[in-house]
């Protein structure tokens, strides 16, 4: 069992390594993608600087907390899109019959499929996330906690992408649903949760768990509470389990396809 887990880990790392090698074929494109993503994220901070020059507190967040929020959001997004980019293209992978190659291999189909692609710009998100973390929380322990939290957040985002992408086993054009669902997870991520009220707030801690990926980690980084950490870890575990269940249930309905395809 332990050897199998070790071997699976080795394959996932190799797969990510090879996918990264592909992205690095063109130095200019690779570096531009990374740098522009950092600049893109940084440009939004200017708007917050302007807002905080007018008032000290927005939605219950100080400027420092907003920086942390951006760090956590970019970090979780970076982890998910860098290591598991193909989770976001799972719907197309299923409908185009591209799972065939992974099914005939003696490894975990889902992990093999989602680690087969990396998104270069997500490296920019990760770098940006750590810049924000270092600027606000300067202690080593905070950086460690931050790392743990963005990994949990990345896992939750990936799990949601897998669940939404797996709908393709049941419905045609589920890629549109997946795109909308994944979009909500990022659209709400960069605003202080105090500005959301009522039903929206409930949704942000349940169906669209932006609160668990972003808001609770920001609270943890400013005021650590074990119960909050438990919520994040627990939620991540449930999402992983759910993602595997939905994917493998759906796999029984997989109909492959005879489209010509290449592994590029």
């Amino acid at each position: 069992m332990l050897t199998a887990v070790k071997n699976q880990g080795k394959i996932s790392i190799l797969s990510i390594k090879y996918a990264l090698m592909k992205e690095m074929l063109n130095k200019t494109t690779f570096l531009t993608n990374v740098i522009f993503m950092i600049l893109n994220n940084a440009s939004f901070i200017i708007q917050w600087i302007v807002l905080y020059s007018i008032q000290d507190n927005i939605g219950g967040y100080t400027f420092q907390q907003v920086l942390l929020l951006w760090g956590v959001a970019a970090g979780s997004y970076g982890v998910s899109h860098f290591f598991f980019e193909n989770a976001y293209e799972l719907a197309e992978t299923i409908t185009d019959g591209k799972l065939d190659a992974y099914i005939v291999q003696p490894k975990n189909i889902l992990l093999s499929a989602i680690t087969s692609k990396v998104k270069t710009s997500a490296l920019g998100d990760l770098l940006y996330a750590y810049i924000m973390c270092v600027v606000v929380a300067r202690s080593f322990s905070s950086i460690l906690l931050f790392t743990f939290l963005i990994i949990c957040g990345g896992i939750i985002l990936t799990g949601i992408a897998v669940i939404l992408g797996s709908l393709s086993f049941w419905f045609k054009r589920a890629d549109m649903v997946a795109e909308a669902g994944n979009g909500w997870m990022t659209n709400f991520a960069n605003y202080p949760d105090g500005i959301f009220k009522g039903v929206v707030k409930v949704l942000l801690y349940t169906l669209i768990p932006v609160g668990i990926v972003n808001y609770i980690p920001v609270q943890l980084l400013t005021h650590f509470r074990l119960s909050n950490l438990g919520i994040v870890v627990g939620f991540a575990s449930v999402i992983i389990l759910l993602a595997f269940i939905v994917f493998y249930r759906g796999l029984k309905r997989y109909s492959s396809s005879n489209l010509m395809s290449m592994r590029i």
Partner: peptide
């Protein structure tokens, strides 16, 4: 078992055959 689907490539196109074979070796432990 081994499978070759003429219409579906399993190899990573940006890698050399040698690197691909090493990858497949790792897949099969």
């Amino acid at each position: 078992i081994g499978t070759v689907f003429g219409q579906k490539e399993q190899l990573w196109t940006h890698l050399t055959p040698y690197d691909n074979f090493k990858f497949f070796g790792a897949i099969y432990d």
